[in-house]
Design a protein around this nucleic acid. Sequence first.
DNA 1: CGCCTATTTGAACCGGGTCAAGCATTGTGG
DNA 2: CCACAATGCTTGACCCGGTTCAAATAGGCG
Lengths: 231, 231
Amino acid sequence: MPLNNPNCYTCQNKDCTIQKKFNQKGLKVINEKKHFVKVKRKQSIALEGILLNELYFIYEGKAKVVSTGLYGKQQIQRLAKNGEFLGYKGLVQNKVLPVSIYALEDSSFCVVERDLYLSLLKEDPDLMLDTLIFIVEQFTDVEQRMKDLTMMNVREKVAEALLFIYKTFGNKKTGELEVILSRKEIAEIAMTTKEQVSKSLSEYHDEGKITVAGKKIIIKKLEALNKIAGK
Amino acid sequence: MPLNNPNCYTCQNKDCTIQKKFNQKGLKVINEKKHFVKVKRKQSIALEGILLNELYFIYEGKAKVVSTGLYGKQQIQRLAKNGEFLGYKGLVQNKVLPVSIYALEDSSFCVVERDLYLSLLKEDPDLMLDTLIFIVEQFTDVEQRMKDLTMMNVREKVAEALLFIYKTFGNKKTGELEVILSRKEIAEIAMTTKEQVSKSLSEYHDEGKITVAGKKIIIKKLEALNKIAGK
DNA sequence: CGCCTATTTGAACCGGGTCAAGCATTGTGG
DNA sequence: CCACAATGCTTGACCCGGTTCAAATAGGCG
């Protein structure tokens, strides 16, 4: 992790939206104007209720996006890693942020002001269309997830939660989920209780579909989990 | 309802996206190139699984957007009326449609080809930004609804469903929900069973919050329902 | 008017949330 | 570096809300 504001031209995050999507001029402007922030594990980057006017690109680390609902219940809406783009809801809306963002491990972020980003969007129709497509894809995913969370039983929802984690943090070779999440946090993905997560994980372990050793979870039979989640 | 393709310049749907958002050139092109279709109550406009390559603007009538999930369960994801814009998921994605669209009463739609719409979007950054904002708003609504449906008990979800219907079809003066929906359909909004909807409606009726006379539901105490739904 | 479908209401059952106890793991200070 | 406290995890028992099933009633349509 660098001590100072990284340089986009030498940055190794090849999947970063800035590098992938911006044209020459945009890249130059962002490289000059962006800030850089570091946070420790469990600290927040942005809190529910603020008027967000900046966007975050994860330089190094892992983050969760959490929203609070009825009776103070928490729901994890998104997991994100290096290169991913957070805060697009603040991009176009002048409304209070409906979510909080927390670092799941010591992390660093490149920060871009909303107005700067918006002005670059307006100048670059291709970028705008890419952004539109990105958001529609996220949208479709959320609708699918809403169906899953409202139609599945607990066992299915926990399988789904494992696949959800795998999508962002799964080692595609070993099957290991390379992130530290508590049972409570997995429950906030599956929308159930920590006890039910514990029970379902034990079941899947006994069935040979996963191995569980403390916080370390390895997916052994991806297809079996997919089948349970109806995918 | 006209017999033929209506004319955008004389159309009375002042809330139609076409009239509100398109510039002169766009309006002209769409007015010339759009089609016009009529469907009877309960008929479909588009079915889950197809590759959608057109967009719909409701000229006259009412529609529901439904998606099928695990074990064939149905979820009503959206209700729409005159002037509203359907099919934006097909706009930018070349993926099979994850939803079906049905008419809730005899209806007619203006139909625009996707490629035509996309080309107009690219030429008009303001329209594109408006579309982006529209989709982010819908997105935020869906995330809120996902929280509600996963955190609320049945009584709360039914109140929420009534408010959901009210938003699109509620007569703001009388409180009447001006649409015919079965208990089953209300259940597919609240994500519960038709029996539970029946029971909750009876409760709300007894409490004076709504009046129920067959299919006709009138909201008497909007604030009371809002309070139950935590809004 | 009569059939068919939708709605209402009650009863029974079951999945999953809550509670509690014991165990494992992590973190802290001596 | 170890001891012990604190926190997190596992597992079982219990209980409640909500789904399912069933039967009676109301409403819509030919």
